[in-house]
């Protein structure tokens, strides 16, 4: 099976992210970056499929030069080769713009499966994988926790809301958006990193892919949310406190 995994580099979860002076993006200069979490699960699923059924796993990632470190990490974990779509304006493209780049890079590969993570930790758009499928004309399914190969295609476990699941069968080629948590992730190893040095990373540019398009939605400003999280102590008699809590849970936190 030939599997392509679309991965994204995002700021580290713990990074002290600040808004840039223009208020339109975050300050990237002092940030550290890491592989997006659900993309890591997509990669893991791909690697496990390869280990079971043979074939090849290639990763594709769009972004500036720094993305190279995340690509190497994916190669270190076991991907066979990579395509790096070099572009410095990733965050000013909308989801369609990014998906066009990815689709243009993936199309000539003619993969059996295109995997992506469910959503990115920075922008959280959660649609790039689906749009790529649409652009490539592939059947797709999202929120996938597990992929099994069948005679005719794949059978996937899809997460529904509130603890329900569903199996879905798809013919190949197909595209899947992988939900976090379906597999145990493997950690990167020194041996993997050393072996990755010899693996192929093809560099493409947005211009070469001819996939430029004007954005249809634009992110104008980013700002800190007005309300920061802090502890609310509920006072009064146990009865009053209990009533106040219930009210808060229902109407403020909306978890009941």
């Amino acid at each position: 099976m030939k599997i392509i995994v679309a991965i994204k580099q995002v700021p580290e979860r713990d990074a002290p992210v600040r808004i840039d002076p223009a208020g339109t993006w975050i300050e990237e200069s002092s940030l550290q970056f890491a592989l997006n979490e659900s993309d890591a699960y997509a990669l893991e699923e791909a690697l496990q499929l390869k280990e079971k059924h043979g074939g090849e796993v290639a990763v594709v990632s769009a972004g500036p030069e720094r993305v190279g470190s995340t690509i190497r990490e994916a190669l270190a974990k076991g991907a066979d080769r990579a395509v790096h779509i070099l572009c410095d304006d990733l965050h000013s493209r909308d989801a369609l713009g990014v998906a066009r780049l990815l689709a243009a890079a993936i199309k000539p590969e003619q993969p059996d499966l295109v995997l992506s993570g469910l959503q990115s930790e920075d922008l959280g758009l959660g649609q790039t994988g689906v749009i790529v499928a649409e652009l490539l004309g592939l059947p797709h399914a999202t929120l996938i926790l597990n992929v099994e190969k069948t005679e005719t295609g794949v059978k996937v476990k899809r997460e529904l809301e509130e603890g329900w699941f569903q199996s879905v069968e798809l013919p190949l080629p197909a595209a899947l958006s992988i939900q976090s948590g379906g597999n145990k992730l493997r950690y990167a190893t020194l041996m993997g990193i050393k072996r990755a040095k010899t693996k192929e990373v093809r560099i493409l540019t947005a211009a070469e892919l001819g996939a430029d398009s004007a954005p249809v939605v634009r992110m104008e400003r980013i700002a800190l949310p007005t309300k920061q999280k802090s502890t609310q102590m509920l006072d009064g008699s146990p009865k009053e406190a209990a009533a106040a809590l219930l009210e808060k849970l229902k109407f403020e936190a909306r978890v009941l």
């Binding site: 930790e121 992110m219 980013i222 800190l224």
Partner: peptide, 29 residues
């Protein structure tokens, strides 16, 4: 996607970085 507020314009607010920031979006096409 995942809009949390709609303002004049209309301007759509959605969260970035897992709720650490709010971003405002406009439909331009």
């Amino acid at each position: 996607s995942d809009v949390v507020a709609i303002g004049e314009g209309p301007v759509f607010t959605r969260q970035l970085m897992q709720g650490r920031f709010n971003a405002s979006y406009r439909h331009t096409a």
